[in-house]
Amino acid sequence: MKTRIVLADDHRMFRQALRAMLENEPGIEVVGEASDGIELLQVVQQTLPDVVCIDIGMPNLNGIEATRRLLALHPATKVIGLSAYNDRNFILDMLKAGAAAYVTKNEAGDELLRALKAVRLNRKYLCPDIADVVMGAMINTQEVKSGTVRLGARERQVLQMVAEGMTSTQIAENIHLAPSTIEVHRRNIMRKLNLHSVAELTKYAIRNGMTNA
């Protein structure tokens, strides 16, 4: 039996892209779409889906309020918060309203699928970024970083070269990319690892056996 999903987002293109991605997945069926909170309630009333992906910033009725009302009417429906907001208050309010999972739009691909699986198993799910924020809120420190940092292949390559003392220009020549792209990778790495200098990057690379320099 396929999981029946309704998508609620005021951004039509995003909705379509999401729908295309989800419909590629076996066992998932998008049964309805809504562009605001009020419309969502009507669509849910008509389609009675298993899961609803709700954006927070929507006109007429915002995602948090819509979730609250929706769950009051259909408590069995699973709600996944799918928003560009990664601020703690939005996340917590969404969870308080009854959402079972929260995924940032940035992670709408794999993470959303993981979240779908989780909620189907009656489990809660937060994508890693969000988990960081929520855990940080609970223990009130910024040093928390989930152990789920995953660097991509290109990122590992760049990190290794940085640790070996190469400049962005050298790296760019080496792997035939624009220097600005190398800069982008560097920034992404530093963000993901919560590091702020080349020295820290080098230390991390050595510690993780990524370089023999």
């Binding site: 987002d9 951004h11 295309a20 991605m21 560009a84 739009k105 691909g109």
Partner: peptide
Amino acid sequence: LHDSTSPNLATIKLILKT
């Protein structure tokens, strides 16, 4: 930015992933 640019980027990413 929130209503338009961010979703656009998310959409591009979704499409690329797809």
